[in-house]
Every structure is written in C-alpha cells, then in structure tokens.
Amino acid sequence: MRPGSGAVLVLTLLAGLAAAGSARAQDAATPQACDVPPYLLSTESTLPKVAEAVKNARPLTVLVVGSRSSTILASESSAYPAKLQAALKEKLPSIPVNLSVELQTGKTAEEVDPGLVKLVEAKRPTLVIWQTGTVDAMRSVDPDDFRSAIDEGVVALQNAGVDVVLVNLQYSPRTETMISAPPYLDNMRVVAQQHSIPLFDRFAIMRHWNDAGDFDLFSTFHGTDMAKRVHACLGRALSKFVLDAARLDQAQQN
C-alpha cells in the first residue's frame, strides 16, 4: 500500500524476478527428494500417551480417521497410513506398531464426530490421526460450525484418553478456483492451538513440494504413480512429525 513508490516498486520487482525465478528452478532439479523443511515438522504440542507407550515398550496402536484423500483407490497399501506404519516400525523396532484406517468418505467433521468415540472404544488406539477438512471445504460448511465440530471431536477423543494429531487438507492447485481451503486450514490451526495438539500441515508440506519442484501437483498425470510417490513422502513426513511430537526423535531412533 505504499503508493508513492508503487509502480517503481513493481518494475524493480519485475527486474528481480527472472533472477529469483531461475534460482528456484535449479532447486527443482532434484525430483522426488521430497524433503520437508524442519519447521513444518516440528510442533510445540506433545503426544504424551505415545511417548509413554514407547517408553514402557507397550504396543503402539494408531487409528487413522480420514476421508478419501487418506487412501489411494485400489492401492491402499501405498497410501500414507500404510507408509506411516512402515516408517514407525522401522524407527521403533522394539515394539509392535498396529495401524488401522477408518475411512469416513464424504462426511463432514460434524458427521464424523458421533462415531469417533465408538471407534476409539473398538480399536483402543494410543493415537488417533484425524484427517479432515476436505469434505467441509467442498461443501463450504460454515467455518464456525466446522471449528466447533473439530473442537468437539478433539475434546471427545482427549476425554477418551487418546493422543490426537490433526491432518489438514491436501494442497490441490487444480481445484483452487473451486475449493476455498483457507478458512478450514485456519480453523484447524486454531483448534490445534487451543487444545495443544499437533497439527500435521499436509497442505503446506505439499505446497512446499510443488513449489520446490519435487512434485508437479498441477499435472494432469493419469496413473496412480504420482499419487503413490506423494503418499510415500507424506507417510514418511508424518512419521517424523509424530516421533518429534512424542519427543522420541533422538532417544529412540536407531
């Protein structure tokens, strides 16, 4: 808004663009690296139940509650939950790691809420990973309602005695003109902050990969190949995130 130098600023900018741009493009030269900057994987919030289970060498049971973006149609074993399990097993070789996925296809957070506690009672997990927001964004549910729905869900889960990790929307550039993600991202962040639970920022991470050139998420690629690679990277990142939040990173890693 600094009008004085408006146009000059813009022009200077343009001049600088080419340079900055090409520098960026070079970074992109190494595909599939899918590194995640540390700040996207660190959290102040903790996962005490997970930490306790690992320290006492009890089995770690993880329940993933999510919508369709928590799976890849027809190849579930390549989706991020399975990859997460594999990575956790690798990093925590001394204890059994169980993981189950409960897909709530097409349900908003509010519609998922009532079933959450029942799921927990049935599966007795240590950690619930709740991926949500996509359906709400697609149906443009009132963000306030969305917030109170997640809030209720998180409280119910915490009361049921499990650790909770929230996973937000995918970064989906193709549908950016159709689905407005920001209000839902913001509200998930708010709820996570209020309850001091870790939020796995899938959106920011995927956007980082897209910007860095690891994945071209704009691509019209038809096969499941890219989906599998993205999910593999997501699973690995999520495992790091969970271990970091449980403060197990240094202690337990081989």
């Binding site: 919508s67 369709r68 973006s69 890849i72 149609l73 097409g106 996509t134 359906v135 697609m138 995918q170 989906s172 193709r174 549908t175 003109t177 159709m178 689905i179 998420l217 691509s219 019209t220 690629f221 038809h222 096969g223 499941t224 890219m226 989906a227 993205v230 999910h231």
Partner: peptide, 25 residues
C-alpha cells in the same frame, strides 16, 4: 467463463491423488 473452464478441467483431469477434491465437479 468459469463454467467453461470447470467443464474442461473436469473432463481432462483425473489425477488419482485428487479423486476426492474432484468431487467438487
């Protein structure tokens, strides 16, 4: 114009990574 764009994208774009998001169409 928006309809035209969406219709085009909807018929051309089938990335399985985004099968959920494409439901918006």
């Amino acid at each position: 114009i928006f309809l035209a764009e969406i219709s085009y994208v909807a018929t051309r774009f089938e990335n399985p990574l985004y099968s959920e998001e494409m439901g918006i169409m």
